[in-house]
Computed example of a mutant assay.
Amino acid sequence: MTKASVLITGASAGIGAVYAERFARRGHDLILVARDQNRLEELAARLRQENPVSVDVLPADLTVKSDLAAVEARLREDTRIGILINNAGIAQTGGFTGQTPGSIERLIALNVTALTRLASAVAPRFADAGGGSIVNISSIVGLAPEFAMTVYGATKAFVLFLSQGMHVELSSKGIYVQAVLPAGTYTEIWERAGIDITHASKMMDVGELVDAAMTGFDRRELVTIPPLHQAERWDVLDASRQGLLSDIRQEEAAERYKTL
């Protein structure tokens, strides 16, 4: 049986490149998407040499409308693609008041808009086929406004919510959706964002992160948090959220708001 092809965004380095290596080892053909064509070509050549797989390179800046549209078209039309790894993303340095309109727009364009549009492009075909997998890379920062990465964290909170909502809507159609929440991981994202991690706490190796995420993928976890050492913490948080919703009575305000 032919294995599904895997389209990976942000594939030229870091998490995306390791996902490419791991899926190639499993015998999946790949479509690698990133801005840096030279690095993509180098990675593709190495993966072809090391594994009996086909590797296509699709250079694209997902913040550019025409490039994003080209990747969407590939996802809609290439019926070999059965797995989307929605990994491309950027971080941002500085506090909320120090962000520029341009930096905010670019962050949201990549972390939110592109990710959502790519998932939206492939989901109808997966639903018609009765199967497919979408992996969205979120972040622990999306659970932690205390980390003071406000805009970045908000985009990652969006990714988690989106993934959970997609599961509710799409699981009955045979589509598996996984949200992966890394914490600090050694990748180029820090340098690109201008964040000095020289004196930061020790982080996770990117290979260890992706291996853990793929274990969650194999187990069909809905939310995979590799650095969370007590899994029940997430279960308690999610149960608390559902309990809060059960106490919502939308027809009237709570009694505490009816008196001064």
Rank of each mutant, 00 (worst) to 15 (best):
V210G: 03
L162G: 02
T100V: 05
K202F: 04
R35G: 01
N111Q: 10
L228K: 01
R74K: 15
L84M: 10
L228F: 01
E251Q: 14
A253E: 14
G142F: 00
D128Y: 05
D61H: 13
H199S: 14
R39H: 10
M214N: 12
R192E: 15
A231D: 05
I248Q: 11
I90S: 07
R241M: 13
P182M: 01
A114Q: 06
A45V: 08
G130P: 06
S103G: 05
P227I: 03
N86M: 08
N136R: 08
S163L: 06
T9C: 12
D61W: 07
R233V: 15
Y176N: 12
A114I: 04
L244N: 09
V177R: 05
Y19E: 03
Q250P: 11
R39K: 15
L228A: 04
A193I: 08
Y152G: 01
A179V: 04
G130W: 08
P226S: 05
G153I: 00
R39D: 00
I90F: 01
G131H: 11
N136Q: 11
V53I: 15
G14T: 04
I225M: 08
K258G: 13
I197W: 00
G94E: 09
T97H: 13
Y152H: 07
A179C: 07
I85C: 12
Q230L: 10
Q230P: 04
I248G: 01
I90D: 00
R48I: 06
T215K: 11
R48H: 09
V122H: 02
A73V: 11
S201H: 12
R26T: 00
T198P: 04
T116V: 05
R125K: 13
G98P: 02
